[in-house]
Design a protein around this nucleic acid. Sequence first.
DNA 1: AGATTAAACGGAGGCGCCTCCGTTTATTAT
DNA 2: ATAATAAACGGAGGCGCCTCCGTTTAATCT
Lengths: 204, 204
Amino acid sequence: MASKPSTEPKDQTPPAGKSLRADARRNRDKLIETAAQAFADHGTAASLEDIARRAGVGVGTLYRHFPTREHLVEVVYRHEVEALCDAAEELSRELTPDRTLEEWMHRFVGYIATKRGMGDSLRILLNSNSELFADSYGKVPIVLAGLIARAVADGSIRADVDSTDVLHALSGTYSMPNSPEWHNRSRRLVGLLMDGLRWGAPRA
Amino acid sequence: MASKPSTEPKDQTPPAGKSLRADARRNRDKLIETAAQAFADHGTAASLEDIARRAGVGVGTLYRHFPTREHLVEVVYRHEVEALCDAAEELSRELTPDRTLEEWMHRFVGYIATKRGMGDSLRILLNSNSELFADSYGKVPIVLAGLIARAVADGSIRADVDSTDVLHALSGTYSMPNSPEWHNRSRRLVGLLMDGLRWGAPRA
DNA sequence: AGATTAAACGGAGGCGCCTCCGTTTATTAT
DNA sequence: ATAATAAACGGAGGCGCCTCCGTTTAATCT
């Protein structure tokens, strides 16, 4: 598996998505990408007509692919979690285990940032559809645990680390206030965590 | 108190409603009346523009009086509970205590019927604003208890009645299915209750 | 009664939602 | 290659939301 370069084309709707016509898939992908941006910028109340426009398609196309706003939100959400998880593998191909962990944590925190903007609809979704939460978010702890295990094996971070503790520490950023300092604050948090993890490591 | 005829003019917003200009009060009342009808017919999602149109005013007027849909829903709700409570006094002026009780229970059940249609927004309101619930719905048990006490004193119903039990019995109609039989069903329920209450009464 | 003025009116306008259906286009069969 | 066909497109149109502001009018003052 994973023998192709696979630099960008990775998606499709795993369960329900049969073979789509080429143009359909193109438009679908563009819509998801555009929507992700729009939701990040304006929250999930962003104008769907505007998303369609920016994606260069008619509203009809948007509604055909995603019958309701919630459908679109859900797909975007799933996509981003998957991208986050996939990034772990890619990063570890180019960086040392500890640098991979650090970079991935930065991305995780950035990911959380966009979710705060989506809070409104997302909460509804997660409440009414807990399967979604389990399905996609469920992978995150596993990925993190894997990255930590590698870094431990590598000797670049200490061995007595509970990955769940690290996840909780990172998740705290979700409830931080929206100040412009937010970004720096979360960068420092990750830095702090890494310092703690490296302290007393075999190869430190 | 209550020395005037007072056949219809009873409303105003008790706490916040200062003295309104004559035309303003007219429009406000008409809007509430029209909205009550619309909500009963189409649920709380009824078109506000349509309500304004039917009330013979511009939408601007509607929005000035009721900034949000929820405001309007709340006012309509309060109004109806008050009307229901006031009806008790009026009815008892024209009917015997047991007939008053019977007729009032019919109205109560009819009132519940409209609330089922409003379920959507009303639930939100009652959750976020429990003061509203306590304020207005709180009077209902008291009114019912009063009517029952009168009929007991009158000897037309038996004395060993817990008014709370009666209220619970009536409230059951809230969760009945929407069949066309609904109305008959609830009429029979009230009849049944009255038969039970009259059984073994001193003057029966 | 007439003038004044602040309150109230009302609807046009801009935007977003969503559907419907005539047109375009990728795919399949020949 | 070409035709046939089913899939997909896209935007106009109808409706509802809400705001803004020029016009009307009830209440007050002289």
